[in-house]
Each structure stands twice: as structure tokens, then as C-alpha cells.
Design a protein around this nucleic acid. Structure first.
Lengths: 126, 126, 126, 126
DNA sequence: GTGGTCTAGACCACA
DNA sequence: GTGGTCTAGACCACT
């Protein structure tokens, strides 16, 4: 369900967050679904429960999942967040750097938008 | 020439790299232009020379600038890099995460592409 | 009579306590009314009897309900508690935190008092 | 600057968060002020650095402070957040319970609003 | 058994 | 020295 690359520089807890979000977007996980307990997932991906807990807490603070003491953790009912303009601004900065890198490899605007569309297709397929 | 936000979470050496690349893309810096020495730039942006040095080393290893002992540092002649498929793949991963975050805020494909176009406009203007 | 949100972060026994208090405040439950037994209520709201029992014990220790062995559980005769200054002080602490959070969202004193009044209306209506 | 009650049931990291927010609201801490490093504050309040770190991370994700690796942590420039309707709704639930508790102690609407005003005065004075 | 909190101690990236 | 990440292990509240 979630694949972890322990050799990646991306922190494990972020990989869990991203993996979970991807599963939700692809509707592999749907509202009210139960997800693995902190300890279960930790043992599946051979990570420390605290690491999984941190990811779950972050997902909960973003309103994507709901944790209930003594019962378990569930996908939230309404997982559509409001548009966070601070976040959009930050993402625009990321995109700017990507565009500049692409430019230095000779990839222009239309080619870049093609790449974006490819990624959308990959998400839909995967 | 290069603006540093010391309160950003992005490391200063990366900000220098990105700023330099942006200047090259905007043709503010052209091939064979002389750029400030490590110490000069460090004093201009009030950073540690070690930090500037790290940025220059990175830029040189990417072939964007050339250091000539006893003369100074220059923008490389041919600064168009080859398409590095490993890098493209890594960027696709970044884009995937951005798309998923956007999706959770209710921003779909066409709106996202609009945002990309906005960023292109901002780069051209800026 | 009492609605339980099993996906809330608030413990179920607290939801039972709060629900019971709300019913008393709204005069849906009046002094000497008989309330469901622990097992009955547990089956109604599909909770563990231990959980309901804990809530009843708490309510009884606060003097809001009375259990009579072999007969059942009843709303207490005089359910008006004395003003507990320790509790008022603790609630003031809660309010302080709420005020600070509101302030950071740009909600000032008069707007906050409006919100309080809204809640009073909702309780009267509900 | 921040007082911790280790005997309180409120987690230490929340006490740090609330204390910091209070200091910001009272303008004891102003934008761009440097706050104690994770290790410093941990030693001042005799808590574990991880605990302080968790509080700082939460404050950063709320946009109140900015952490810079290798430099330190600072009060954010613009600490006014948008109105978060999910949070307002959650707070309304808290207020509802407070109102019900107050009612059971014979404290009615106008008296309750008086208490709110008292808290505002205490914050301004303190 | 489930999540929540806390401590202790380690290693890394950055300035 | 500063923050960021991770592990290991402990205790508590809730079901």
C-alpha cells in the first residue's frame, strides 16, 4: 500500500504522508476506511512507531484522517481542504525553481506542460 | 543581483545557486561574464564565505560557471546542460506530490496548468 | 436522546456526560425522571457498558443523577451545583486559550462575544 | 517567559505553544524577534529538547514562528492567520460544553459574558 | 490493543 | 551551536 525508500533523502514520515495522500487521491482509501494502526504500519514498513505516529499526526492536523484513542485511525469524512494561499505561494516558488532547472536542460514551456500532463496520466493509471 | 531571504527554510547556498541560475535564464548574466569572487559576493549578501563557496562549487560541478585560478569566476560558454533523465524523473516525483496537494485543495489539472503559466509570466516580468 | 460521534477525538464517556447535561439543561430530562440503565443505554448507542458505567459514575459523583440499587437511575432532585471556583478558574484558562487563538485569526472581543451568543441560540433551538 | 506546570494534565508541548502564543499576543514577542533555541528552552524549563522541538514545529506549521537550520528560531513576520472554519466549529463545541457546565452552576448568559470580559482584561493586564 | 506523551540518546545538514 | 530526523523504550488514557 505504501512503499518506503529508506535510501531516499526524503524523511520516512514524509514518504508515509505522501503515500497516504496518493492512496486517498486514487480512491484506494475512501472516507471512513480504517487504516493500519500505528504499530501495524510501523512493523509493515519496519520503521519506528513514533515515526508513523508523526506522519499520522500531520495527516490528522491537515484533516485527512481521524485518530481515535483506543479504537484506531480512519480516513476523514470530508477530506477537501480549503485553498491555503500560503501553501500555493510556497508551491509557486518550487515550480519556479523547477522551471529554471528545466530551462537549463533546454526544456521549454510547452514541453514542460507536456511533462505535467504525463504525470497526471501516471497518477490516473497507477 | 541575488536576493537572499535569511528567514527562508531554504538553505542560503541553494538560494545562491537558484538565484544565479535565474539570472542566467533571464540573460542578466551571459556566457563569459565575470561574476563576483566568493569573498565579494559573501560581503554583498552578508553571508559566510564558506556558504558562497559551497554554492560556487555546486554551480561549477553542474558546468554553469568556470573558475580560473588567479583570474576569477566566469559564466560558462555553453551553459545548456544535457537532459538528465534521472533529474527529470526526480522532478516528476516532486510534481506528483504538488499535484496531490493541489488536488486536496480542490485545484484540478486545468487550474494547475494556469498556475504554471502564471509562474512563467512572473519569471519573464521579474 | 444522546448522539455519539465515534469518530470524534472526545472520549465517548465524556460525550455521554455532556449529552446528559445538555438534556438536563434543555429540560428534556427533569428531576426524578428515570434514565436508561447502563446496559440499555450501552445497547442504544452501541457502546461498551463499561464506558457508559464510567459516565454514570462521573455524573453521580457530580450529583446530577442518583442510582438506587434494584430500582434504576434517576435525575437528581436538585441538580443545581454550587459554583465551584476551582472549576471556574480552570474554565477561565480554557477561555484564555480560545481568545488567543481567535485573536490570531483576527477575531476580536466583540466578534467573539457574537460567537458566544450564537452558541446560546443554537442550544436553545437544538 | 513561559511557565510550565508539570503537574498539569495539559501536555508540556501544548503549554509551550499556548505560552508562546500568549507572549506574541501580548507583544512581549514581536515579529523577527529571536526566541530561545530548542536546547536552551529545554534546559530552562527542564524538559526534553524533543518536547520543545515538537512545540516549535507546531507553531511553525501554524505560521507563527520560522525555524532556520543552523541559525535559530524567529517570530514570523506576518502572524495573522486566516479564519479556519473547522477550528471555529471545534471551538464552538468547546464553548457549548462550557456554557452547559456554567448553567449547572447557576451561571447564566449575561454572567458568562461578564466572565469572558474579565478574561480579556486579565490578558491585557498580565 | 489503540493512540498520546515524554525521555534519552544518536546522527545529519547548515552556518 | 542550531534545527531535523530517527530509534528505543516507557507510561498513561481509552475501549
Amino acid at each position: 500500500m505504501i512503499s518506503i525508500d529508506s535510501r531516499s533523502s526524503k524523511p520516512i514520515y514524509e514518504q508515509i504522508i505522501d503515500g497516504m495522500k496518493e492512496n486517498i487521491m486514487k480512491k484506494i482509501l475512501r472516507p471512513n476506511d480504517k487504516i493500519p494502526s500505528v504499530r501495524e504500519l510501523a512493523s509493515i514498513i519496519t520503521a519506528n512507531p513514533n515515526t508513523v505516529s508523526r506522519a499520522y499526526k500531520e495527516l490528522e492536523s491537515q484533516g485527512l484522517i481521524v485518530s481515535i484513542k483506543g479504537k484506531g485511525t480512519y480516513i476523514a469524512d470530508d477530506y477537501t481542504q480549503d485553498v491555503d494561499y500560503r501553501k500555493v505561494k510556497q508551491i509557486k516558488g518550487q515550480i519556479k525553481n523547477i522551471i529554471i532547472d528545466m530551462h537549463h536542460m533546454g526544456i521549454d514551456k510547452s514541453e514542460f506542460i507536456e511533462i505535467i500532463k504525463e504525470v497526471y496520466l501516471e497518477i490516473d493509471k497507477g
